[in-house]
Each structure stands twice: as structure tokens, then as C-alpha cells.
């Protein structure tokens, strides 16, 4: 009897330990990500005219894209995978230049540790892209969804260029869609290891340089490429869209600072 009571006590003690680590205190702090759209060193202004390296002019009217599947690389090469859930849009972010709140969001909770790199998809992974009606940021009613070849628009840039061959000189660079289109992965090394502790997190401030949309891995020329809405035409735009991002700087963020904002 005494033996059995001891075993029960031990089991209860183990359960209470598990309760502390799983259900009790959070497993870490959120990590904040802020994105600024720039052209070279200057903030992007919708409607402003910019020039490509080849001398073509362009302006942006609308810039929206999905970021998802965030991972943080630890110094030892292992990864923290940002949680996503099948029955919500948690972990899927719709960034819109015209919506300031959309350019700052949080991933995590991130376990304490030392992190050396950030990875994410520009777009939506194939599994979720084919998974049926979604909610939240992935609600197809948000207009980032193709109906003529069902799937999410990963990256949407609408603007103008006098060089555009379109009758109204429009530029419509839409990447993504159905048919099992693959979203591009981006890996950004952090300039110095970022330490997340029990009471300190960080804000990673990313710059997305729209000049690199035209002068990236491929040089895009509005005279010949002004409308892209299918995978073949958008392949070069998709490549370039994954090359816009860099870590501009990193803030340390005390736990108290995380409570403010989203």
C-alpha cells in the first residue's frame, strides 16, 4: 500500500512538472518583425516615379504579398519553426504597403536561445494553397486569390510605366496562384546573434527594396514585361520578389515593450 501511494505521489509530482512547462508559463516571448518598403535608401512612396538601371520609369500604386512559414535558425543549426494551425490563418501574414498595421507583426512564442538567421516564404505553401476555404488573412474575400486558376496571389505589384506596352501603361506583376505553384523561400542571416531570454526579445527590422524588383536576379523591362498573371510569365518576377528583403537592423525588446502594439 505504501509503495502504491509513493508511486501515485511520484506520478502526481511528474504531472505537476509537466503542467508547469506545457500549460503554465509561456514557452518563450514573441519576436516582432517590422517591414519597410524602400527604393534604394529612400522610403517607397506610392505614386512616386522611380527609374530602373536601364533607365525605364516606374511607379507603384499597390503592393501586397503574403509572408508565411517563418523559421529562426539557431547558432547550432537547429530551427525554431513558427507555429501555424490548420484551422486558422495564424502564421500567415498579408503585408500591404497601404496598411501600416500590416507591416508589423509577431511570430512565436520563441523559446529562449541564440538565433542566427530568419527564413520565410514569399507566398503560401502548396499544402495550404490547396486546402480549401480559409479564414483570417487567408480569406479569399480579401482579393488575394485567383479564381480562374484557384490559388493565392503570393505577390501583387500594380503600378505604371510610360514604357509599358499596355494601352494604359499599366504594370501588373502578379505572382502565385494554383496548379501547385511553389512559393519562394528567403533566408536572411542576422548581422549578429539575436538572444531571446525569459525577459528580452527582439524586433527584426526588414527592408524590402522595390528597386530590386526591376534590377534583381533578372533585369525586368516594362516595355516587354508589363502584365504577368500566370506562372510562366511571372517566373522572373517571382525570382526577383524573393530578393527584395534584407535585415536593416535589430532592436533588443524588453518584455514590457512587447505588450504595446500587436
Amino acid at each position: 500500500m505504501a509503495d502504491r501511494a509513493a508511486r501515485l505521489l511520484a506520478a502526481a509530482w511528474l504531472l505537476s512538472l509537466a503542467g508547469c512547462s506545457l500549460g503554465g508559463a509561456p514557452a518563450g516571448l514573441p519576436l516582432r518583425i517590422e517591414i519597410s518598403h524602400v527604393v534604394g535608401d529612400a522610403p517607397l512612396q506610392l505614386g512616386n516615379t522611380y527609374r530602373t538601371a536601364a533607365g525605364d520609369s516606374w511607379s507603384a500604386e499597390r503592393l501586397r504579398y503574403y509572408l508565411s512559414n517563418f523559421r529562426l535558425r539557431r547558432a547550432d543549426g537547429s530551427w525554431f519553426v513558427n507555429p501555424q494551425s490548420a484551422d486558422s490563418s495564424r502564421g500567415y501574414f498579408l503585408v500591404d504597403e497601404a496598411d501600416g498595421a500590416s507591416k508589423q507583426f509577431q511570430i512565436g512564442p520563441v523559446p529562449a536561445g541564440s538565433y542566427s538567421g530568419l527564413e520565410f516564404l514569399v507566398g503560401v505553401d502548396a499544402a495550404r494553397n490547396g486546402a480549401g476555404a480559409q479564414t483570417g488573412t487567408l480569406d479569399p474575400a480579401r482579393g488575394m486569390f485567383w479564381t480562374w486558376n484557384t490559388g493565392y496571389i503570393f505577390f501583387q505589384f500594380d503600378g505604371h510605366s510610360p514604357q509599358s506596352g499596355d494601352a494604359e501603361h499599366a504594370l501588373s506583376y502578379h505572382v502565385g496562384g494554383g496548379g501547385g505553384a511553389t512559393a519562394h523561400s528567403v533566408f536572411l542571416p542576422l548581422p549578429a546573434p539575436v538572444e531571446v531570454t525569459a525577459d528580452t526579445s527582439a524586433e527584426l527590422h526588414l527592408h524590402a527594396d522595390l528597386a530590386r524588383l526591376f534590377d534583381g536576379a533578372h533585369a525586368l523591362h516594362p516595355a516587354s514585361l508589363f502584365t504577368a498573371m500566370d506562372a510562366a510569365a511571372a517566373a522572373q518576377i517571382a525570382d526577383n520578389s524573393a530578393g527584395l528583403y534584407r535585415i536593416d537592423h535589430v532592436h533588443r525588446l524588453p518584455k514590457a515593450g512587447l505588450a504595446e502594439g500587436s
Binding site: 476555404a133 479564381t147 484557384t150 490559388g151
Partner: peptide, 16 residues
């Protein structure tokens, strides 16, 4: 074959 999943089919006629 432009619609890849049954739930999403109505989006096509609703918005066409």
C-alpha cells in the same frame, strides 16, 4: 480544371 478544390469552386461563378 481551373478550380482545384470543391469548396473554392463557387468563387469562380460568383466573381465572373
Amino acid at each position: 480544371g481551373s478550380v482545384h478544390q470543391l469548396e473554392l469552386q463557387p468563387v469562380a461563378p460568383i466573381s465572373n
